[in-house]
């Protein structure tokens, strides 16, 4: 097994690409860094669990398990907290919470919209690569 700590970003991308090919039945050329998992690859909520299981298997080593907690890659039950979401839009508190809990996601285009139903679309292949890179370095 390759030592995951020493992987370059390109090697990480290749491994994430393989995970997504298997989990979503997508072709290699459909998966670029900018690809959105839900918008472009039609991933559903169960696919995120599948992706998490496969990431754990791919990036665990004998001396360091790669374990993803529930809601770590993508926060759950956003709608149930009125402090975070009002009228289908994220509040200031909700935005801060998301940015803190999802440092692997680029929110720059989302600030002005804030529609909670579009949060999932922000998860791109680059988000997953970033997520794995941060966790391996932690």
């Amino acid at each position: 097994m390759q030592e995951t700590m020493t992987m370059t970003r390109d090697e990480l991308f290749k491994k994430v690409q393989e995970v997504l090919e298997e989990a979503l039945g997508a072709d290699e050329d459909e998966i670029t860094l900018e690809t959105s998992l839900t918008r472009d690859l039609e991933a559903e909520s169960i696919d995120f669990l599948d992706i998490v299981f496969r990431l754990e298997k791919t990036f665990s080593t004998s001396d360091k398990p790669f374990k993803v907690g529930q809601g770590e890659l993508f926060p759950e039950n956003l709608m149930e907290n009125p402090e975070w979401v009002q009228d289908g839009k994220l509040t200031d508190v909700g935005m801060s919470m998301l940015k803190e809990r999802m440092p692997h996601v680029d929110f720059s285009q989302f600030e002005s919209d804030r529609e909670v139903s579009k949060v999932a679309e922000l998860i791109t292949v680059n988000s997953i690569v970033e997520f794995v890179e941060r966790k391996l370095a932690a």
Binding site: S45, I46, L49, D50, F53, Q70, E76, N77, M79, E80
Partner: peptide, 12 residues
């Protein structure tokens, strides 16, 4: 196969 524990997943 993948199984879901639906009470934990289907938000709302």
């Amino acid at each position: 196969l993948m199984f879901s524990h639906i009470d934990q997943n289907m938000s709302g």
